[in-house]
Amino acid sequence: MTYCCAIKTTAGMVFLSDSRTNAGVDQISTFRKMLIYERPGDRFMVMLSAGNLSVSQSVREILQDESIKDSETGDPVTIWNARSMFDAVRVLGSAVRHVNHRDGAALRHAGLEFNVSLIFGGQIGDEPMRLFMVYSAGNFIEATTETPFFQIGESKYGKPVLDRVITPQTPLDEAAKCALVSMDSTLNSNLSVGLPLDMVVYEAGKLQSDRVVCIDHDNPYYRMLHSTWTERLRQVFDGIEAPQWNGGKTDIPLRVASSRHPALKKITSPRERLI
C-alpha cells in the first residue's frame, strides 16, 4: 500500500511519501512515489502517487508530453508552460484520463480497477502556492484554509496528529515535523507502509528547493523522532487519571447519574431475554 501526505501553510509546503508497494505478502517492493518538477526561478511542482503502480507510472510518463488546449489561444499547454497551477493540474487530470482510456478496459477485463490517487502541488511564477488532490477520473479538489493538507493511501493512522496540529499559520519546520510524526504513526500501525521515505520542504516564493531528503532506518533525526514520540505519548497517557467509578478522590467520576443514559439491562438467568 502507500501513505503520502502534503501540507500547505503560509510559509511553504511539505511533501512526504513512503516507498513500499505490495501485491501480497510475497511481493513487497520499493518504488518511489514522489516526483519533483523544477525549473528554478520559474516553477516548482511535486507529485505524489498512490494506487495501482502500473497506472501511476504510466501517468508519470505521459505527463511529460501531455497537453491541453489554452481556452483563449488554443495553444497547447503542458506542465512546463502552464501559466498557473490550475492549468498544470488540468494537464495532470488529462494524463490520468488518457491512461484510463488506453488501459482501463483491459484492467477491468482482468478483474482490476483503474485505481490511482495523486497529490499535486507547488508554485508557478508570482502565483500563490496551490495544492490539489486528483482522483481516478481526472477530477480534482484544492486545499483550503480549513483543510490545509491532503493524504492518499493509508491515511487513517496519520490523520489525527495532522488534524490537531496543522493550521495555515503552522511554521514550516513544525509542519515538517508533524508530517514525519504522521508517517511514523502509520508505519507503526500498518505493515504495508515502509521506509525509506522521501521528503521535500518548499519555502514559499523560492521556486526551487534544496531541502530534499531520503530517510532510511539509519537517519538520526527520524530515529530520535520515533523514540521520542513513543516515549512522550506514553508519558501523556500515564499522566491522565484512571477512571473512578464511585467518585473516589476525584471530582470527575466516570459514572454519573443521567436520565439520558439509563443503566444497561443485565441478564441474570439463562432464560431471561432482552426486551
Rank of each mutant, 00 (worst) to 15 (best):
N115S: 14
L131R: 03
K206A: 15
Y202E: 06
P128G: 03
N115I: 00
K249F: 07
E142D: 05
V161Q: 01
E142R: 07
S155F: 13
A11W: 05
N100F: 12
G111Q: 08
A175R: 03
K159F: 00
H217Y: 07
T21F: 01
G153P: 09
D238I: 01
E231P: 02
Y135I: 00
I62R: 12
S269H: 15
Q57H: 12
T10P: 00
I28N: 08
T167W: 01
T250S: 15
L274P: 00
N246T: 11
E142Y: 05
F120S: 04
S192I: 11
D218Q: 11
S117E: 13
R271I: 06
G51V: 10
Q244H: 15
H217L: 10
P270R: 05
C4P: 07
A175Q: 01
L16R: 06
A257H: 06
Y3G: 06
I28G: 09
L187G: 03
L48H: 02
S71F: 05
V236W: 07
I36V: 15
R32S: 14
D251M: 09
L197D: 04
N188I: 04
I141A: 13
A143H: 01
G239T: 02
G125N: 03
D42F: 09
Q151Y: 09
R102Q: 11
E66M: 12
K69R: 15
A6C: 06
D70P: 08
C4F: 08
F150S: 05
N190A: 09
E142T: 08
K69H: 02
D216N: 14
Y135F: 15
T228A: 08
M224I: 00
I7R: 03
M47G: 02
Y202M: 06
R83D: 10
A242W: 02
T186H: 10
Q27Y: 12
M45L: 14
M1E: 13
A137S: 15
S54A: 15
S259E: 14
A82L: 03
S29E: 13
T167R: 12
N22D: 15
G104F: 09
A143G: 06
S94L: 01
L191N: 12
E174D: 10
D18H: 11
S182A: 12
R83F: 05
K8M: 14
D103Q: 01
D26V: 00
I68P: 07
Y221F: 14
S189W: 01
R223Q: 14
P148F: 04
N81I: 04
Y135V: 05
L107I: 03
I36W: 02
R164Q: 03
R83T: 12
N22K: 13
R271W: 11
T9I: 08
I28S: 12
E142K: 06
S67N: 04
V256S: 11
Q169D: 11
D26Y: 09
M1P: 13
A137H: 08
P220C: 01
T230H: 12
I36N: 03
S94Q: 13
E113A: 11
S29G: 06
L162C: 04
T186N: 11
A137V: 05
T144S: 09
L63A: 01
F237I: 13
G104I: 08
E66W: 01
H261W: 11
A105W: 00
S17F: 04
V213M: 07
A95D: 09
